[in-house]
């Protein structure tokens, strides 16, 4: 029996296609990507805002990383006892610079390395349900 899973927040990501995707939008006039979804294009150089749903991922490059060494304040969520986790900023090949966590089992952290979007647990509900968010994994 597979573990029950619930997204940390609805509407931000999906793996329905079998591949992890971030759900955002893109302006067809100026090509600016947005995550999360945006109703309007905020590019001051863009005269005609034409924003449509788009999705992003999975491939990208690690721009930077850090390790969260202490329990973050609310509204962050984590399992007790707190285990440090790695944070990262990734430049996705489709033009989005996005923040996220590195997957817990990933030890290889090097700026400039190739990574890939994944969905994984950031914590668990009391009944053991995995709370899922987006994260990155070295490739």
């Amino acid at each position: 029996m597979s573990t029950a899973r619930v997204p940390v927040m609805e509407g931000l990501f999906s793996d329905e296609s079998g591949e992890a995707r971030l759900l955002g939008s893109r302006c067809s006039t100026c090509n600016t990507p947005y995550f999360p979804r945006s109703d309007r294009c905020h590019n001051p150089e863009c005269d005609v805002s034409q924003v449509q749903d788009d999705s992003f991922g999975p491939r990208g490059t690690l721009w930077s990383y850090s390790v969260q060494n202490y329990p973050p304040p609310p509204p962050a969520r984590y399992d007790e006892p707190f285990e440090p986790y790695a944070l990262c900023v990734v430049d996705l090949d489709d033009g989005l610079r996005v923040v996220g966590r590195m997957a817990a089992d990933d030890a290889g952290l090097e700026v400039g390395s190739k990574v890939e979007l994944a969905l994984g647990p950031i914590c668990h509900e009391d009944d053991g349900t995995e709370v899922i968010s987006w994260m990155f994994r070295s490739v």
Binding site: M9, L12, Q68, P72, P74, A76, R77, L87, V89
Partner: peptide, 16 residues
């Protein structure tokens, strides 16, 4: 969203 979905408090921005 940044705090809830990723868990990135203030100092981590500077760290990155």
């Amino acid at each position: 969203l940044r705090q809830r979905c990723v868990g990135m408090p203030g100092p981590s921005f500077w760290a990155l």
